[in-house]
């Protein structure tokens, strides 16, 4: 059995983090690593109560930096598969097994969650437009064909995690990962996942159209530079 670590980057998530971690553990994955990215609230304490391993950034460095911290820690601890999972409760822990399976079986290096395979109907219209546009852009820039452009639900092998060079500290890390998949010619697949849109998740994950435009702009710049 491969050792699976679930990495959750959290910033000011005291309201949701405990339920999210409990849900993941209940789904059969007790090895949860929460990276508190300098939250001023009780995110760390709430995560600790659930039995997760908590790493704390003493100051905020961004979601990309927090995930990299969690991934590096998971690699240090000898995990075979690393899953990145959102802290705001929009991912379904019951999807983790399906995400891990193709990576654990060695069929792919990285599995990427997609909300548009089987579960496309619950995606709000403007969000769908932005994500599909982003997917088209990533395909043109990196040659990685995806149906969903900005899903934080991923499962990667330790080998793939070591090969990817991740430098982006903030939100553009998601596009950077796609770029690395293309550049390193990693084998990937998409797995259908459920995204639960709540007022909290929409607010916290900056899913506004301005944020999407900013990420698209930074993705384009990253591509120009490589």
């Amino acid at each position: 059995m491969p050792r699976v670590a679930i990495v959750i980057a959290a910033l000011r998530e005291e309201k949701t983090i405990a339920d999210v971690v409990r849900g993941v553990i209940k789904a059969g994955h007790p090895n949860v690593i929460v990276v508190d990215d300098g939250s001023a609230d009780r995110t760390s304490e709430c995560a600790l109560q659930t039995g997760a391993t908590v790493l704390r950034h003493i100051i905020n460095r961004g979601q990309g930096a927090a995930l990299k911290t969690g991934i590096d820690y998971a690699l240090d601890k000898g995990n075979d598969v690393i899953v990145t999972f959102d802290a705001d409760g929009q991912h379904d822990p019951n999807d983790i097994d399906a995400m891990v399976a193709p990576v654990a079986a060695g069929r792919v290096d990285i599995a990427l969650g997609s909300r548009f395979i089987e579960h496309g109907s619950n995606v709000p219209g403007t969000r769908r437009f932005a994500l599909k546009g982003g997917a088209l852009m990533l395909r043109m820039l990196h040659g990685v064909r995806l149906s969903d452009s900005h899903n934080g639900f991923r499962a990667m092998s330790a080998h793939a995690a070591r090969r990817m060079e991740l430098h982006a500290d903030r939100m553009e890390h998601a596009s950077e990962i796609i770029g690395e998949i293309g550049r390193r010619r990693l084998c990937y697949c998409e797995v259908p996942v459920t995204i639960r849109y709540t007022a909290h998740s929409i607010k916290n994950s900056k899913q506004g159209s301005m944020a999407a435009a900013r990420i698209a702009w930074k993705t384009l710049l990253q591509w120009v530079m490589h």
Binding site: G51, L55, R56, T69
Partner: peptide, 20 residues
């Protein structure tokens, strides 16, 4: 400096993992 700050913050975080 920003990049080095991230590296220092990461090292500190990884040196002090907490678990109940």
């Amino acid at each position: 400096l920003r990049h080095e700050t991230t590296l220092v913050v990461r090292s500190l975080a990884m040196m002090n993992p907490k678990r109940k």
